[in-house]
């Protein structure tokens, strides 16, 4: 357990978080290793975990019938994979594939949601860290939609 807490402490997502709150989260954590090509999760699967990336690159992709899956974003060391655990009905909306060897800490969603309900201070702390990531990704998606490079 202590080792997981140390791993979280060194990750940018948890920067500045009090050790007490981090310890609560570490209580829901477990270590993962994914080989290149392995999937962290699949579309429509139950979003019962999110991933704190420690090493490697994860490709988020959408499959289309008769065509190769399209990668719409890649995430790497220091980033977070998965937000659907926050929003009912807790289902993944895309596939997450390890593009390289990936080492990650998985946080059990049901466990963390329960702790957040019980301790709104923890819940708010998590929201303050997740919302900026969601907004940044939304913004990046907006730029992608513009398909700007065709113009120059």
């Amino acid at each position: 357990m202590e080792r997981l807490d140390d791993l979280l402490a060194g990750h940018p997502f948890f920067a500045g978080m009090s050790p007490e709150l981090r310890a609560l989260i570490a209580g829901c954590a477990r270590n993962h290793r994914f080989d290149a090509g392995q999937y962290l999760f699949r579309e429509s699967g139950s979003a019962d975990e999110f991933f704190v990336l420690r090493h490697g690159r994860v490709a988020l992709e959408l499959a289309q019938p008769g065509r190769a899956p399209v990668v719409f974003e890649t995430l790497g060391e220091g980033e977070i994979v998965g937000a659907s655990w926050l929003v009912p009905p807790y289902r993944w909306n895309y596939d997450a594939r390890a593009a390289t060897l990936v080492r990650a800490v998985g946080i059990d969603a049901a466990c963390l949601r329960g702790k957040c309900e019980a301790d709104h201070h923890l819940g708010y702390e998590m929201m303050k860290r997740f919302v900026p990531i969601l907004v940044q990704r939304l913004h990046a998606t907006q730029l992608q939609i513009l398909d700007i490079y065709g113009n120059r």
Binding site: L60, A68, V71, A140
Partner: peptide, 23 residues
Amino acid sequence: VTVDHADASWHGSVGVVTPLIRR
């Protein structure tokens, strides 16, 4: 280097260029 769209044969980054500034 990052691209807006790719298939699985691309092993590099996917996404817009601005987040690279943070990295």
